[in-house]
Structure formats: structure tokens, C-alpha cells
Amino acid sequence: MSSAPLLSDSALLERLAAFDTTSRLSNIPFVDFVSDYLDRPGIRLERMRSPDGTKANLIARAGADRDDGEGLTLSGHMDVVPADEPDWGSPPFTLTRLGETYVARGAADMKGFLALAINRLAGLEPARLRRPLALLLTYDEEIGTLGARRFAEGDSSARRLPRDVIVGEPTSLRVVRLHKGMIRLQLTFHGRAAHSGYPHLGRNAIEPAARAIDALAGLRARMEAERPPHGEHFPEVPYAALNVGVVTGGSAVNVIPDRCTIQVGIRLLPGMKAEAMTERVREVVAGAVPGESFELASLGESPAMMLDESAVLHRELCGLVGQRGTESVAFATDAGWLQTVGLRCAIFGPGSIEVAHRPNEFIPIAEFLRGGELLDDIVRRRCLAG
């Protein structure tokens, strides 16, 4: 069992921020630290390794598992985006106080919430629990919600968590019940390489790809005029947004290119099916390049999420912060995959997404501390009250 003293929320955030958990790196040192910190009487720990063994989800529970799913799960991702920008005013993996903010990579997205969630579990007296409290910490959210997908598709025994889940992405402590999903597709066109002085010996792969890009632009425009269900909850972009994001092809101007790839991202609304949208892309591209063969592959999926407005978790959190009505975000989170296994998710955490993924990322200290107070309240209601 751990002999580590319970740190303050700010001190724990400082320790967490010091780990470089950029998605390209292993998160095992971070998982080891959190596991050691949580290795206390009454807390059960479980790791779920990535297929290559270099990453892991961490599941921590206190209190007896219940068949009725009562209790509460707090969830967040451990990875962060790179901090390679030259504009940092302080070392990105050193928590620095600047005025009334804490600055570090991941301070908002989302090690601030992780510190609060971990301490809520570490500071509990398990014997006082009437219903269980659990943590689900995931890997590689930033590069496609990979850890959450691994959890959702893994051993069902690992998924016996309390059904109501707070996913602590930065929402400035607003309660979010819907978000868009995202699919990532890659089109590949093949040609035949040749010297550009002898074009009759080759076949240019970029030319059909260019026609495909033009057709995708037309599809994007048509989709912008559509109003699918639930679009009213995303007033700025009430449609599925398509982006041709990466095009790769050719090696030199005197070589006819034999390969060209196009990567496409599409932000789906709740209720839209990835398979149907993928088939729509296939049909549009096939119509633009008759007679040309191409490959269409999925590079990843992060499902959309929607929690019913009348759900107890939504109403309870809205009551705590005095919020009325529905709020949504256009980015995807782990909640999309968690929802697929019957978990009821709300997005709720300190910090702003507007400062995430940027140099000098920060979290307001007052908001961080208020987040801890609100989690104390919801844990007390959900797990300790009679």
C-alpha cells in the first residue's frame, strides 16, 4: 500500500504536469505514478494495456460493484498534445503560477481535472461509501480516442463501472450533454511512375485525386446546406462538416507520380452513422473518377455523444452550477466510445478549450479550486449520502 501523503489539488497538478505525456510517448511512467499514489486501503486498481503494450488505461475503484450501476465514474485522458511551439513563456512541463492562473501543457486539457478526480478518490474513506466511486483514465484521446475505444471493445468485466460518468474535458464548468463525432478517411489513388519526358510510359495518380478533391468540395457544400437531426444544438455549424485536410503525392517534378493520398475528416452529428457517411464519400468519389480504381480506408472514428436532457446526471450537474438549457461542443471526446457500452456521460470540467492546444495553456486557479468543490459535492451526493 502507498505511504504517499495526500497532496493538495495544486500540488498534485504540479506533479502530473511534470510528466511529458505527449501522445507519441509511452504513458506508463504516468500510470505508475498515479497507481502508486492511489494504492491505498479499499482502492482497487486495474490496467488495460494498449495492443502494443506501450500505453495503458487505468481503472481505479472504491466501494462494492453494483449490478444497478449506481455511484459515479470520473473520467479523463492522460495524454497531451505536443508542446513544441517556441512561444512558451515558461517550461511547458513545469506548472508555473502566472497571476491568477496555472500555466503548463495539459493544465486545462486535462490534467487539472485529473488532479481533482484522483484526489477525490484518494481522499475518501472507503468504509463510508454507500455507492462506488471509480476513475477511468485513458490513453491517446488526442490522436483519436484510442484508449476509450480499447476500453469499449475490451473485456466486459473491466466495464463494470458506475453508469453515470463525468468526462472532465475543459468546459469552463458548464455542463455539456452533446458533442459531435469525427471520422477520419483516407483515399488512395495509384498510377505508374515514369520519367516526365516520356509521359506515355506512366499514369499520373495526382490527376484523378484532384478530381476527387473537387467532388469532395461539392459534397462539403451540399452538406453545409443540410439540416440533420440535432443540428439545432450546434447553431454555429448545424451540419456535418467535411474537411480535406492532408494531400500527399509525388516526389519530384520530373517524375510522374505513382501514388496520391487524400485524408478527409468529417464531423458527424449525434445519430449519424460512420458507415453511411463513408459510403456517401465512396459514391461521390467514384462518380468523379469513372474508370479509376481507388481505395477508401478508415483511419479512425470518435463517435458523437448525446445525453438525454432529462437524465439525472445532467439535471444534477446543471442544478449545481445554476445552468438552464442544453450546451454542446463541436469537438469529440472519449464520451462517444463510453456511450456505446451503456455509460451515461456528461462533459464537465474546469478550464477553457480555447486555450488548449496552444502555447502557454492555462487554467484559472479560482476555477480549478471551484471545480474541486463541485466534485466534492457531486461525490457526496452520489456516493456518500444515504
Rank of each mutant, 00 (worst) to 15 (best):
L137E: 02
V284G: 06
R370H: 11
L216W: 05
G265L: 12
V31Q: 07
V81I: 07
D65F: 00
D52I: 13
A60E: 01
G349N: 05
L268M: 12
A332G: 05
I353C: 03
L375W: 01
R174T: 12
R370F: 03
A210F: 06
R128W: 08
R315T: 10
R128C: 10
S196T: 15
L95F: 11
F348E: 01
L136H: 11
S26D: 06
K180H: 01
S3Q: 15
A311Q: 11
H357N: 14
Q339E: 10
E46Q: 15
L95V: 07
A115N: 07
L375I: 13
G336I: 04
H233P: 03
A194W: 14
A252H: 14
V285Q: 03
E169D: 09
R280D: 12
P235S: 13
R160F: 05
N360K: 08
E301K: 05
L58Q: 05
M78V: 11
L384A: 05
L338I: 06
A152T: 02
L133N: 00
A297D: 14
D20P: 07
A205Q: 03
E169V: 08
L58F: 10
F362N: 06
G250N: 13
E169C: 07
D32N: 14
P235F: 12
N254F: 11
E292S: 10
I378F: 04
E361K: 09
A107K: 01
H314M: 09
F294Q: 08
E14L: 04
S35D: 00
G287I: 12
A215C: 12
P170R: 02
A221N: 12
W337M: 00
P270G: 13
G291M: 09
R105V: 02
A346G: 08
L307C: 10
D52F: 15
Y139G: 04
D20H: 09
H230V: 08
E367G: 03
P228Q: 11
I206D: 05
A122F: 04
G168Y: 09
R24Q: 15
R381P: 00
E46L: 13
A209V: 06
G218K: 13
A209S: 14
G106E: 05
L320D: 01
S251C: 09
I143M: 10
G287V: 13
F93T: 02
T326M: 00
K55D: 12
